[in-house]
């Protein structure tokens, strides 16, 4: 669907040249919800804005269904943009128009006839659940309702791609949830591809199929959301995950353990149902002391975290850890105070 190749964006300020996007390569499949997460200043906003060329890249290609949009003439680009919907953090609705007028706006731009326009507008307003607000002005709506108008407007010209630029970042958690639900629903109903950027891991967890993590103009990690949660490689990714899954274990846990090796085991889905601990104990003659355990839910898949204290011969401990890894679990060795022990590489 979208293929981004060697994308570079440089800005020149008076003093220096800033590289906002540093050789981005990305493939987004048809019908998926792809999330890009990163701290502010990572370049994610610049990246999503290059996809409809609101931002001109310095070099590189953006292919949408095989068509390189960076080389389109202005007229063709405008036609192309009509098939790419976009929603914004601050909604960007026309204050001078009602809900109906706002949704009708892109259709007027595309030159859709009045009768057809009215039919489609009614259907869209119904779709986003604002039928009773159709003649209200944006100033009379809540943030969540405004974003619904934004979504209806973005869908008006039946786009194949929807870009979401921090669409839930100025909403309260409840509205965020309902907007994300709406996005997932329209993806299913309209066979839409959605590219969204956010700085909230919760958004990624709730709706995205795949995710890319951006830092300083680069994509540092990319994969299925569930895999990223289970097995984050970069410290930034880990930080994002920690923002929604509590990895801060109570200190008391680590105060009076028996001096064995502390490990954190994370496991996903199926392995939850295997009797791993008991085989660990039996096979490697270890004492496994469970200090802490909990299960989070990520997109309906159980994601478990266990803190174990393994006592036994050091060699056996290492073998035991490798056994768990062999079963597809993520195992991290912790130092005595519960911090991730970077020194120990098992």
């Amino acid at each position: 669907m979208i293929e981004i190749k060697n994308l570079v964006k440089k800005y020149k300020t008076r003093q220096e040249e800033i590289t906002a996007l540093n050789n981005i390569n990305l493939k987004i499949n048809e019908g998926e919800i792809f999330g890009i997460i990163g701290p502010s200043g990572a370049g994610k906003s610049t990246l999503i804005r290059t996809v409809n060329l609101l931002e001109k890249p310095s070099s590189g290609e953006i292919l949408i269904n095989g068509e390189n949009i960076t080389s389109l003439a202005p007229d063709l680009l405008r036609k192309r943009r009509q098939k790419i919907g976009m929603i914004f953090q601050h909604f960007n609705l026309l204050n001078s128009r009602t809900v109906r007028g706002n949704v009708s706006f892109p259709l007027e731009i595309a030159g859709v006839a009045k009768a057809e326009r009215e039919k489609r507008v009614d259907r869209l307003i119904e779709l986003v659940g604002l039928a009773d607000r159709a003649d209200h002005y944006p100033a009379q709506l809540s943030g969540g309702q405004k974003q619904r108008v934004g979504i209806a407007r973005a869908l008006a010209n039946e786009p194949e791609l929807l870009l979401s630029d921090e669409a839930t970042s100025s909403l309260d958690p409840e509205s965020t949830g309902s907007i994300l639900e709406l996005l997932a629903r329209i993806r299913d109903e309209m066979k839409l591809t959605i590219l969204l950027i956010t700085h909230e891991m919760e958004v990624i967890k709730q709706v995205c199929d795949r995710v890319a993590v951006m830092e300083k103009g680069r994509i540092i990690e990319e994969g299925k959301v569930i895999d990223l949660f289970a097995n984050p490689r970069q410290s930034l990714t880990r930080r994002f995950i920690k923002s929604i899954i509590d990895f801060n274990f109570p200190e008391e846990l680590f105060k009076d353990h028996n001096g064995g090796e502390l490990i954190r085991v994370s496991f996903l889905g199926k392995s939850t149902h295997q009797p791993l601990i008991s085989s660990l104990v039996k096979t490697f003659e270890l004492d496994a002391n469970i200090l802490y355990g909990k299960i989070d839910d990520i997109q309906g898949i159980p994601f478990g975290t266990l803190i174990l204290e393994l006592e036994g011969e050091y060699n056996q401990v290492l073998k035991g850890i490798n056994y768990l890894k062999g079963k597809g679990l993520t195992v991290e060795v912790l130092s005595d105070d519960g911090a991730l022990d970077q020194a120990v590489q098992v």
Partner: peptide, 24 residues
């Protein structure tokens, strides 16, 4: 932001002048 939204929808400068700038 509103002007940008119109650009993202594929509006021509003339459409932006009349439908966005003028009415807003």
């Amino acid at each position: 932001g509103v002007i940008e939204a119109a650009q993202a929808m594929g509006a021509t400068p003339l459409q932006i002048v009349f439908k966005v700038l003028f009415s807003e």
